Simulated assay, not measured.
Amino acid sequence: MIDHSLLRPELTREEVLAGLATARAYGAATVCVRPADVGLAVAELRGSGVAVGTVVGFPHGGATTATKVGETAELVAAGAAEIDMVIDIGRLRDGDAGHVEEQIAAVVAAAGGRPVKVILENWYLSDEQKVAGCAASERAGAAYVKTSTGFAGGGATAADVALMRHSVSPAVGVKAAGGVRTLDALLTLRELGATRFGATTTAAMLDDLAMRLASRREWAHRSGMEKRPPAGRR
Rank of each mutant, 00 (worst) to 15 (best):
I2P: 00
L7V: 07
R8V: 15
L11K: 07
R13S: 13
G19T: 03
R24V: 05
A25Y: 01
A28S: 14
A29L: 09
A29V: 02
C32I: 02
C32H: 02
G39Y: 10
L40T: 03
A41L: 04
V42G: 14
L45M: 06
S48K: 01
V50L: 13
T54N: 01
G57D: 02
F58R: 10
T67N: 09
T67Q: 13
V69R: 00
E71N: 03
T72G: 06
E82I: 00
I83E: 09
I83L: 04
I83V: 11
V86Q: 03
I87W: 03
I89P: 04
G90M: 07
L92V: 05
E102L: 11
A105G: 07
V107K: 00
A110G: 01
G113I: 01
E121C: 04
S126V: 07
S126F: 11
D127P: 15
E128H: 10
E128L: 11
V131I: 13
A132C: 08
C134R: 02
E138S: 15
R139T: 05
R139G: 00
A140D: 03
A140H: 06
A140W: 01
G141R: 00
S148E: 15
T149H: 07
F151I: 08
G153S: 07
G154Y: 01
A158T: 14
A158I: 11
V161D: 06
A171D: 05
G173K: 00
A176H: 08
A177W: 02
A177V: 04
G178F: 01
G179L: 02
R181G: 09
T182W: 14
A185K: 10
L186H: 12
T188D: 14
R190Q: 15
R196S: 12
A199I: 03
A199R: 04
T202F: 00
A203S: 12
M205I: 11
A210C: 05
A210F: 04
A210L: 04
R212L: 12
R217D: 11
W219D: 03
A220Q: 14
A220V: 07
R222D: 05
M225D: 02
P230A: 07
A231C: 09
G232Q: 07
